[in-house]
Amino acid sequence: MSIEFTVPAVDLTAYVADGTPDERAAVAAAVDSACREVGFIQVHGHGVPTEVLSGLGAAMDAFFAQPLDTKRDWVRPPAENRGYTPPKSESLSLSLGVESATRMNDFFEAYNVGRSVADYPGLPDAIAGHYAVNTWPEVAGFEAQVSAYFEEAARVAVTLTEVFADALGLPAGFFDALADHSIDVLRMNNYALPEGTDVTLDGDLTGMGEHTDYGIVTVLWADQVKGLQVLGREGRWHDVSPEDGALLVNLGDLTARLTNERWLSTLHRVKPPVVDGTIQRRRSAAFFHDGNADAVVGPLASCIDDEHPALYEPVTVDEHVRAKLAGSRVGVRNAAAVREASRVRESVR
């Protein structure tokens, strides 16, 4: 028997266009429900112009269409979390402490840009590594088109934290202290193996392995091509695609910690979309709003009581993100991700 699984749709217009208190309260209640039950949201009314979305897609197409050797010129050291990532050079499941059958077998390729030290003058040297300088490929229009979308996605992410504060009964501006110099990264993904690549289409081939996102909230633009799968509470994987005009939003680990798992940092993955024996191309762009590197995140007092003891010790964003990146990009299993790893192992594949 099939199990019904739905990602709730929420319209943010009341927050984007100064809605009434009652309208905003209704949105906050809907977001609270979605975050409790699913951890993913179909977001409408986000206000991102169509031409900005089209520009992002065009920029990604132009970059990823280049020969692999040309794209490799833009590879950066893994710790910098910038630049080009070739296919099969990461394993997202290791960010959860789960050993993959074959390490570094995720076949997606990606390009990362993010906030740099220039955006936040005076950052301590100890955390400056999270704010690496961007390199921009020599592709006409790429920097301008990607930058335009980056700023729009950042606005949507900040708007969502305003909704989160209301939904959790926190003071207005609560998230400012956690994210006024946030580690913000846009990862543009292309799921298509380079032409001529030898590949066996079997159970070991993974577009992007099981993982949770690292920070506060993720804003995802994606094609309506199947591939993204979300783990439901019953332990089964479900296909999810964005609705017409919607951005997909999901919570990261730090929000799960903050809410003591009242809200879910939902496991998700990308399985190869295979049509007539070949991998169908799929694109996505994930904007990660991860919070200040030097912020300390632990469960809110309002989310702890006798029935809900604290599930996590406080951790700095720096420590948490470093451990996750070391798993996915360097191949060091993240031993701290105990709760998330157990959920992967218990899931029905």
Rank of each mutant, 00 (worst) to 15 (best):
D176P: 09
V338Q: 09
D198P: 07
L94P: 05
G235I: 12
V158N: 11
D239R: 08
E80Y: 03
P8S: 10
F142T: 05
E109F: 02
V317D: 01
A126V: 11
L228P: 04
G83I: 05
G331N: 02
R322V: 01
V249N: 05
D202P: 00
T6H: 12
F142V: 10
E109T: 02
V52W: 06
A153L: 13
P272V: 03
L96K: 12
D306A: 15
V139K: 14
R262H: 11
A126D: 13
V31R: 00
L267C: 08
F64W: 11
I3N: 14
P314W: 02
D166E: 13
R343I: 13
G83V: 02
V38K: 01
G209E: 04
H130V: 03
A9R: 15
A62D: 13
T161M: 12
V139S: 12
V113I: 15
T259K: 00
D305G: 07
T161D: 08
P87G: 08
S147L: 10
Q42S: 02
R283F: 15
N260Y: 09
F175K: 09
L94T: 14
P273S: 12
S100R: 15
A30R: 08
G114C: 01
A30G: 08
A9W: 10
V146I: 13
A192Y: 04
